[in-house]
């Protein structure tokens, strides 16, 4: 396989990983706060805390890994995106900073604070919105290379229907993925009131998710017809995604096999996300940066691949240990240990 293919594949897999784990985390923050407002926090907060406390930091690393990897494999992206994203990137950073630190303050500190929970919950929705703008920008039209350097047209981003459809999709899918997972987690914990509550959230957000996906397609066809055509040519992937969605919602509705239901949610997003990624190729930033043009020096590229494989040997057993201790350990999940 060519180096650039390995690079972009690895990165895309990591971004997908981040999409899943971060969505669970972001949504959980929102549900935590929402349930506190509606006086239902005693029902679901225990479940959310049990899951999040040991893993929140790991979630954060997925994102850093993706960014460092992207800049490492494709240094040209640092130049274009770096110059253009100062404001949106800075805002995302501030939100991530508030979220990460206030999570620790709220959960390891001496007392629960409404303000901390609010910051944690609100940022859970703003971060996916701000991060998703990067995907929008990658479609081109918002960054222009001039004689004086790279210019970012923030006004165009704010007035683009495509941009808003992506933001909408990001927020609703966060809530949908999160609720689906937490329903399963509550089921494992045999915490049925929490499961019921979370299940209604999951079913509620499933509709908007599909609606938002359609909106994004429509927006893309207007914004970048070339990319849209390429997406249509691998339309079967998006069809498969929709099928997985139907199965997941059916199982959720029937309250059967909630674990399998979540696996189908993951497949739904995997098909859509990789379909989007494949049709995006060869551009990393339309039309300035392709994954061939931005490729790193090959010695370094291979060094990165080797480091990556060596790292996986360390990470996979450690992650497995983490999951085994906290996710698939019935006693821990039920709160007995």
């Amino acid at each position: 396989m060519q180096l650039e293919m390995i690079g972009i594949t690895v990165l895309w897999i990591f971004l997908y990983g981040y999409l899943i784990v971060a969505s669970i985390d972001f949504g959980a923050g929102f549900f935590s706060y929402y349930s506190m407002l509606t006086g239902k926090d005693h029902i679901i907060n225990k479940i959310i805390d049990r899951y999040l406390s040991p893993v929140w930091e790991v979630t954060n690393v997925f994102l850093i890994f993706f960014i460092v990897g992207l800049v490492g494999f494709f240094p040209d992206t640092a130049y274009y995106y770096g110059t253009a994203l100062l404001i949106p990137g800075g805002i995302s950073l501030i939100l991530l900073t508030i979220r990460g630190s206030f999570y620790a303050f709220a959960n390891y500190g001496a007392r629960k604070s409404r303000l901390y929970m609010f910051l944690y919950g609100a940022t859970g929705l703003f971060i996916p919105a701000s991060l998703s703008t990067v995907l929008t920008i990658s479609e081109g039209g918002f960054i222009e290379e001039t004689k004086n350097g790279v210019v970012f047209h923030a006004d165009r981003l704010f007035t683009s229907p495509y941009s808003w459809s992506v933001v909408f999709l990001a927020i609703v899918s966060v809530l949908y993925i999160s609720a689906s997972f937490l329903t399963y987690y509550a089921y494992k914990a045999k915490d049925f009131p929490a499961m019921e509550q979370l299940r209604t959230y999951a079913l509620f957000w499933s509709g908007p998710t599909i609606l938002a996906s359609l909106l994004v397609f429509w927006g893309l066809s207007k914004h970048n017809p070339e990319h849209f055509a390429s997406a249509v040519s691998i339309g079967w992937m998006f069809g498969a995604s929709f099928l997985c969605f139907c199965v997941a919602v059916y199982l959720m509705w029937k309250k059967e096999n909630l674990g399998l239901s979540f696996v189908f949610v993951m497949f739904q997003f995997a098909y859509a996300f990789f379909g989007y990624g494949i049709s995006h190729m060869p551009y990393l930033l339309y039309p300035y940066v392709t994954f061939q043009s931005a490729l790193t020096h090959s010695t370094m590229g291979w060094a990165l691949v080797i480091a990556f494989i060596a790292g996986l040997f360390l990470l996979i057993p450690s992650l497995a240990l983490l999951l085994w201790l906290f996710l698939f350990n019935a006693k821990y999940v039920r709160g007995e240990k």
């Binding site: 406390s53 040991p54 893993v55 930091e57 790991v58 954060n60 690393v61 850093i64 890994f65 460092v68 990897g69 800049v71 490492g72 494999f73 240094p75 790193t296 370094m300 060094a303 990165l304 480091a307 990556f308 790292g311 360390l314 990470l315 450690s318 992650l319 240990l321 983490l322 201790l325 906290f326 821990y332």
Partner: peptide, 23 residues
Amino acid sequence: SLPLFLETFAFFFEAIFLGIYLY
């Protein structure tokens, strides 16, 4: 990029075991 990349690996490793240690 190699040391930056390796740094995130080390950090990943630390994050996983910090969660384990705490609980």
